[in-house]
Amino acid sequence: MDLELDELTVVTDGQSLVRGLSLQVPDGKVLGLVGPNGSGKSTALRCVYRALRPSSGTVRVGERDLTRLPLRDSARTVAAMTQDGGVDFDFTVEEVVALGRAPHLRGNQALSGRERALCARMMDRLDIGHLAHRGVLTLSGGERQRVLLARALVQEPQILVLDEPTNHLDIRHQVDLLSLLRGSGLTVLVVLHDLNLAAAACDRLGVLSQGRLVASGTPEAVLTPQLVGDVFGVTASVVPHPLTGDPQLLYSLNSAR
Rank of each mutant, 00 (worst) to 15 (best):
residue 157 P to M: 07
residue 7 E to W: 05
residue 143 E to S: 12
residue 21 L to N: 00
residue 126 L to P: 09
residue 63 E to G: 14
residue 15 Q to F: 13
residue 166 T to E: 00
residue 120 A to W: 00
residue 27 D to G: 14
residue 65 D to E: 08
residue 40 G to T: 04
residue 32 G to H: 00
residue 48 V to K: 12
residue 49 Y to S: 10
residue 245 G to V: 01
residue 156 E to A: 12
residue 164 E to F: 11
residue 83 Q to T: 14
residue 87 V to L: 04
residue 194 D to W: 01
residue 101 R to G: 11
residue 29 K to L: 10
residue 110 A to Q: 09
residue 100 G to I: 01
residue 224 T to S: 10
residue 226 Q to G: 09
residue 18 V to L: 12
residue 195 L to C: 09
residue 192 L to H: 06
residue 50 R to M: 06
residue 140 S to F: 09
residue 234 V to I: 05
residue 21 L to F: 09
residue 5 L to I: 11
residue 95 E to G: 00
residue 247 P to F: 01
residue 221 A to H: 14
residue 47 C to E: 04
residue 167 N to C: 10
residue 58 T to R: 09
residue 119 C to R: 13
residue 82 T to Q: 04
residue 126 L to E: 06
residue 199 A to F: 05
residue 178 L to R: 07
residue 136 V to Q: 02
residue 160 L to A: 13
residue 46 R to L: 09
residue 73 D to V: 15
residue 102 A to C: 15
residue 256 A to F: 11
residue 235 T to Q: 15
residue 3 L to T: 11
residue 216 S to Y: 12
residue 76 R to V: 04
residue 257 R to H: 13
residue 210 Q to R: 13
residue 21 L to K: 00
residue 43 T to K: 00
residue 88 D to G: 14
residue 141 G to T: 06
residue 66 L to C: 01
residue 167 N to S: 05
residue 171 I to S: 07
residue 106 R to N: 15
residue 92 T to V: 01
